[in-house]
Each structure stands twice: as C-alpha cells, then as structure tokens.
C-alpha cells in the first residue's frame, strides 16, 4: 500500500482512539477527547459507551458536538439523566472505565491545570476551570489525556492543580477501589507517554512516525525520559483516516449550517 499523507493532529486523534477498547465505558471531555472517542466508536470499538457530563449515557452522535450538551448527544443517547445523578451514581458510583480528558497544562506527573496561570487572586490568565474533570480524574478507573505537545502545555512547574494525576509521584490512595489508577496514557501529536510504574513520572513509550526524540524534548518543559524499548506508533490506516475526515467534514457542515 502506498504511504498515506496525514497531519500530526490526525495521528494524535487516531492514536488516542486506539487506546479505547470495544465495550469500554468512557466519560468523554469535549474537544480532542470527543473526536478520539467517536472515532473509536466509528472504527474498531462500535460498542464503546460514550458518556458526557451533561447526562447523556451511550451517546452516538453523527457529528462532533461543539458543547458538552449539544442536542445531538441527547437525541442519540440510550438515556439522559440529571447532572446530579450523572456525577453521583455513574461517576462516583465507580461505573466509568476511562475518563478521557484534555488540558491546558500538565506536569511530569500528569497533574492537570485548567484553572489559572499565575497567582489565583491576580491571574495572568484566567482559564475556564475544572468542570467535571477534578472528580473524573479520581473516580474513573483510569484516565487518558490527549493534548497537543508544546512547552506551553508540558510545563516544569504548574501554578495550580485542578485535577490530580499522580500528585507528587506517591502511590495513590485508592480507598478500596473507589478511587481510580489515574492517568495511564497521554497521547499527543508527537508521541505517547505513560507513567513509570515506580516513580509515576511520564515516560515517552512511543514516537509517532517521523518524530524524533529531539522534537519531543524541544516541546517539553522538563528533561523528558524515554522508555528503554521505545516503540513507533503504527501510522494511520486508510480506513481510520477516511472515517476521521468524514466525521470532521460532517461536523464542519453541521456547525456552519446554523446561523
């Protein structure tokens, strides 16, 4: 097969989609995680259960939602519950396999900041805040994070932790199974990172095709470590690319069509 042309963003979304297995119950964040989770549903994981914090359980949107509560999600869901029920019974109740999150910043222990850059009371940049993420990060059995790789995101020191990853690297207090394992995978447009089993610091375990170690280091705000057996991500297949591009095209058309 002739090699396919694709963008780094497409590689990221496709690599992130492959992390979800068929039948996984996934609490989906808006944006990149939603694209990845829906791509998984439309390719190798038709029975993945997509849950959005607006209360929609088993959503099967034909186009990607702009907000976490677009009508498309409710119309295609198995059921729609109230927001208190969503957070109490479904998330806190331990029924979520994977929380799929994005972020504005993250550190070497995959802690997430979506609250503020600079001092909280006198912020340099006020970000939207935590939303569902602070409890998704601890109540889902594991967490995937997908985000574009840059020094603005992968920072040495964060001003604020909105949602816990692996804290300071100490083992998590899992409270008899009611608190999940935390971030197990971070998928960027350059590589895949996983926490070291001992130190819980993020380690690059796979580079996307054509990416170099130097590029990853250049875009990371701390001295990044690489796994001894560094893999190369499988490039996108023709099918994955077609389905993803169709999804984006449908989405653009749907959102442009409303004025």
């Amino acid at each position: 097969m002739a090699s396919l042309e694709y963008t780094a963003d497409e590689m990221m979304t496709i690599a992130a989609s492959r992390a979800l297995w068929n039948g996984a119950v996934c609490f989906v964040g808006i944006g990149l995680p939603s694209a990845a989770a829906n791509l998984a549903r439309l390719t190798h994981a038709p029975d993945v259960v997509l849950i959005y914090e607006s209360g929609t359980i088993g959503a099967k949107p034909d186009v990607l939602p702009l907000s976490i509560g677009d009508g498309e999600l409710c119309e295609t869901a198995t059921t729609t519950v109230s927001v208190p029920e969503m957070f109490r019974y479904w998330l806190q109740g331990g029924r979520i396999d994977v929380g799929f999150l994005g972020t504005a910043q993250l550190d070497r222990y995959a802690n997430i900041n979506t609250t503020v850059i600079g001092d909280y009371a006198q912020p340099k940049v006020r970000l939207p805040g935590g939303g569902g993420a602070p409890e998704i990060a601890t109540s889902a059995k594991e967490i995937f994070i997908t985000v574009r790789h840059s020094r603005r995101v992968f920072v040495e020191k964060m001003d604020f932790i909105t949602s816990m990853g692996h804290g300071d690297g100490s083992p998590r207090d899992t409270r008899g199974g009611m608190v999940g394992r935390g971030p197990t995978r971070v998928i960027t447009d350059l590589c895949v990172l996983e926490p070291d089993p001992e130190t819980r610091e993020l380690v690059v375990t796979a580079l996307h095709p054509g990416t170099t170690r130097e590029q990853v280091q250049e875009q990371t705000g701390w001295p990044i470590r690489f796994a001894g057996q560094l893999a190369t991500t499988e490039p996108p297949t023709r099918d994955e690319l077609e389905v993803l591009r169709d999804l984006h095209a449908r989405t653009r058309k749907a959102h442009a069509g409303q004025s």
Binding site: T115, P134, I161, T162, V179
Partner: peptide, 21 residues
C-alpha cells in the same frame, strides 16, 4: 443543589482529592 433541594445543610461526596481548589 441536590442538598439544597433536599433541605440538608451540606452535601457530601467523594471529591476534591489531590487538587488545589
């Protein structure tokens, strides 16, 4: 909100673990 509707003084839940809020 749920506690407010239920006439309780506060809500209890498993949350705010390991973050700065």
């Amino acid at each position: 909100y749920d506690a407010g509707a239920a006439g309780l003084p506060f809500a209890v839940f498993r949350g705010y673990i390991g973050n700065h809020l």
